[in-house]
């Protein structure tokens, strides 16, 4: 508790380059960039693979690799290989880790849609893309959102770890605090990261309420 007061109560953490507002904005910026790029790649790909049934092996490989690959190792290796300087060396592993949850859940959502629904949509005369976007996507939306949520959470957590290889953001407090044995800073930074993760989680829960069709929600 004293550490929290020491950290959040001291003025030096509220302004300047190392202040909480700056660090928080940085964290959001990296996380959002990585997440958005990953979503732009993974959602269309998942829709395509789920709808056509082609290339499902990609999904299986992605799912397994995502769980088994150690984040820290991947980050350190990629950044060493490409070298630091721009933001990209750190963004690339973040994106790579953010893609699998979205890809897998989008695929599962489309694949797992009731075949009768698919048939009915075709029977009503809808074309392939109309079947996908008007019938299958709304039904798959809860799973797609679950994938996006897991991915966003992964990114926020990994961006924290990425402070170790020189990324800014909230992870800096933890890494720098550990290096200088300033445990108030470590603790305060960790609490901030937890709060951010909870905010992301809550955001997606609310989004789910707003955009998932009430009919689909009832079935579940």
């Amino acid at each position: 508790m004293n550490w929290l007061i020491e950290f959040f109560g001291s003025a030096e953490y509220w302004s300047g380059e190392d202040g909480i507002p700056v660090r928080l904005l940085q964290h959001l910026e990296y996380s959002f960039l990585a997440f958005a790029i990953a979503a732009l790649i993974a959602v269309p790909l998942g829709l395509l693979i789920g709808h056509t049934g082609r290339g499902a092996i990609v999904v299986v490989v992605a799912a397994n690799a995502a769980r088994a690959l150690p984040t820290l190792g991947l980050l350190v290796l990629v950044v060493l290989l490409i070298g630091v300087g721009t933001l990209w060396p750190v963004l690339i592993p973040l994106i790579a880790l953010a893609i699998p949850p979205i890809l897998v859940n989008t695929y599962e959502g489309i694949r797992g849609a009731d075949p009768d629904l698919r048939d009915a949509a075709y029977g009503m005369g809808l074309r392939g893309s109309q079947v996908l976007f008007r019938a299958l996507v709304p039904v798959a939306l809860p799973l797609i959102l679950l994938g996006l949520r897991l991915s966003a959470i992964t990114v926020v957590a990994t961006a924290t770890v990425a402070a170790y290889v020189g990324l800014g953001g909230l992870g800096r407090y933890i890494i720098d605090g550990l290096a200088t044995k300033n445990y108030a800073e470590v603790f305060g930074g960790a609490v901030l990261v937890v709060l951010l993760a909870l905010a992301v989680q809550t955001g997606f829960t609310l989004l789910n309420r707003v955009i998932v069709s009430p009919g689909v929600r009832q079935v579940r």
Partner: peptide
């Protein structure tokens, strides 16, 4: 949803 590094810290 809690980041592992945060919990460790």
């Amino acid at each position: 949803s809690l980041p592992s590094l945060a919990l460790f810290s």
